[in-house]
Design a binder for these strands. Structure first.
Lengths: 249, 249
DNA sequence: CGTTTCATTGAGTTGAGTCAACATGGGTGG
DNA sequence: CCACCCATGTTGACTCAACTCAATGAAACG
């Protein structure tokens, strides 16, 4: 853990997350240091990547929340995922060469930009780090898959419950949540667009969860009133986010 | 293209797909050859990977269709994706160390097994190939994301239309589809579980598409009766599957 | 303070689900 | 070679979860 402190503190959530997958040698830390470009700040609602944009940039999110989404013909949108500190922004778009979705900041954020050359150079110098990036990408996909299951086969109540539990788990990984709850800067409209529901219905479901003593989402704060009950209600499986320690020693 | 023929023919769909991303040197072809384990055959309905299984194997699908799915509490299932020749099976599970979903063959299939050591060795010897694998993983994720959008914000008609167009595009990449149609070995139950609908409703939607002269799905064959109309109906964007040629020269 | 954005609640509508019956057709055992 | 079976496909009648429309608070903001 002391090694982490050798790094620029602002980048820590990223390394913190990756260390769930592998432990880093000094050499590898040095390579990662190359990612440590000066961090940039963006106001809430800034568009970072636009669908169709070619050769988009990738970022590592250091602070704040971001949104990946797609816009549909009718003007509606589907939020694919929210990114929290430590997450990559737009890594997939970089590899596919054109962005297949939009990314914007949900709150004021700070992030460091990562270029394709940085990624390639890292791959060249450390296959283990390449694996780590692959692992991060796989984790992102696992999250998307889990939401796919929610949209396909869970009703509104289970869907909302599952969502808040999932973010509890993700935020816990970077030290931003406890079993009691966490800060969540999203509006009910955000939830609606992420969960394939209308904002009105989200509101009704939140009320039901509150009245049944399961959880409360109010004023930007999530409070778990009955964690175990919620886990049962949502059929939440923590396994896909539990790590028994680094895979690569 | 002549280089492709130097490889074991059975593995060709995979290399064929990857060449959309990059062109291969002779050295790289040699490295890829290491993947060329003897292919194995499995009967339809064989379980290849089970959710929760640790250290699962990965495969490259050579012939036939496979299904990735998750099972829910109530016994229902959500199909995450179907894999066609050239696709990886279970690559994500390998990197996450435990399988987070099930994989089974939908038809009789042949596949070659790929071990973690193979992947790691490849990464060590060729960062460019590592990038190619990363690209393949990104493509998979793009597909899952597109289905997420379908489940979240498209109605049944658009969803079904989009699905068949998407597989048309994917199969075309490995030479198994034309603008006229393709062979599709799935049942209406498969479609239902993939698209978050009931089998009964799938049936009604298929009838509607047929009666409106858009497309026909019958006897394991998809026929596009009005391709452009279908693209418009589904709001289908071919961009996320169109490649202008290899990114890496 | 007007204005805007977000949250809340009621009333009526609808897309998709469920249940149930029946058709078709390949496969299998007697 | 036939009779039956079981999986798949088809259709109608009824139900319900979630949507839309609409109106009203409440808090945030320049």
């Amino acid at each position: 853990m002391s090694k982490l402190q050798a790094l620029n503190g602002l980048q820590t959530p990223f390394v913190y997350k990756l260390s769930a997958f592998m432990s880093f040698s000094n050499d590898e830390m040095a390579i990662l240091d190359r990612f440590d470009h000066p961090q940039r700040s963006f106001a809430a609602g800034t568009e970072l990547v636009h669908e169709g944009q070619s050769n988009p940039a990738a970022y590592i999110l250091v602070d704040g929340w971001a949104i990946s989404y797609k816009v549909l013909r009718g003007g509606g949108r589907q939020i694919v995922d929210f990114q929290i500190p430590g997450d990559f922004l737009g890594l997939r778009s970089v590899l596919l060469r054109t962005a297949d979705h939009n990314i914007e900041s949900a709150t004021a954020i700070t992030a460091v930009e990562v270029g394709v050359p940085d990624v390639m150079a890292t791959f060249r110098e450390s296959p283990r780090l390449a694996c780590a990036v692959l692992w991060a990408l796989s984790s992102d996909e696992a999250i998307v898959v889990e939401r796919l299951v929610s949209l396909g086969r869970r009703d509104a109540l289970e869907r909302v419950a599952h969502f808040f539990l999932e973010f509890g788990a993700r935020l816990k990984l970077v030290g931003l949540a406890t079993r009691e709850g966490y800060a969540c800067p999203l509006s009910q409209y955000h939830l609606a667009d992420a969960l394939g529901l209308s904002a009105v219905h989200i509101n009704r479901v939140l009320r039901q969860l509150r009245e049944e003593g399961m959880m409360t989402f109010r004023g930007g704060k999530v409070t778990f009133d009955d964690f175990d009950g919620l886990v049962k209600l949502a059929d939440f499986d923590t396994a896909y986010m539990d790590f028994e320690g680094p895979l690569l020693k």
